[in-house]
């Protein structure tokens, strides 16, 4: 029976020891330990949060960099394209200008030739007229006897003359 009956002396001493232990540990052990563990947990949570934030920032920065790079590339492409266009245009212009010049020169040459030719022709005509007059004079001198025949001949000769 005394196995299951609490003993006053033992209850007193164990109770006293336990309460003293509770007070001592609470003051000198549990509070500081739990405080530090809490602080550490907070630190870890904060560090994780910071890491997460930093990672997000890094990702944002990277995408920004990529966008910048892309923009720069597009700009470069545009510049190159423009330059190419300008160059092509310039070449085209130069070509057409040269062609126009050449055409003009040819035209000029042609005009000059025509003029020369006309002048030459006029010269030839005047020489032919002189020759014709000379021929006519000779014919007139030879066949002046008959007036009708003279005229006929004159007409015939004139007709035959082809002014080129």
């Amino acid at each position: 029976m005394d196995l299951i009956t609490p003993n006053v002396g033992l209850v007193f001493w164990t109770g006293l020891v336990f309460v003293i232990l509770l007070v001592l540990l609470t003051k000198f052990a549990w509070k500081p330990i739990l405080g530090m563990i809490n602080k550490r947990e907070q630190d870890i949570a904060e560090a994780l949060e910071l890491a997460k934030k930093t990672r997000a920032e890094m990702a944002a920065l990277q995408s920004q960099n990529e966008a910048l790079l892309k923009e720069a590339k597009a700009e470069r492409d545009a510049i190159v394209k423009d330059a190419r266009e300008v160059a092509t245009k310039m070449v085209e212009e130069a070509k057409s200008k040269a062609k126009a010049e050449a055409d003009k020169m040819i035209e000029d040459a042609r005009t000059a030739i025509q003029t020369e030719k006309n002048a030459a022709m006029a010269d030839v005509k005047s020489q032919i007229a002189d020759l014709a007059v000379e021929i006519a004079e000779k014919i007139v001198r030879t066949a002046i006897s008959d007036d009708s025949k003279q005229q006929e001949l004159a007409a015939k000769l004139a007709g035959e003359l082809n002014l080129n």
Partner: peptide, 9 residues
């Protein structure tokens, strides 16, 4: 009243 420092104490 027995408040002895027994084995369990």
């Amino acid at each position: 009243w027995d408040f002895s420092m027994t084995r369990n104490v």
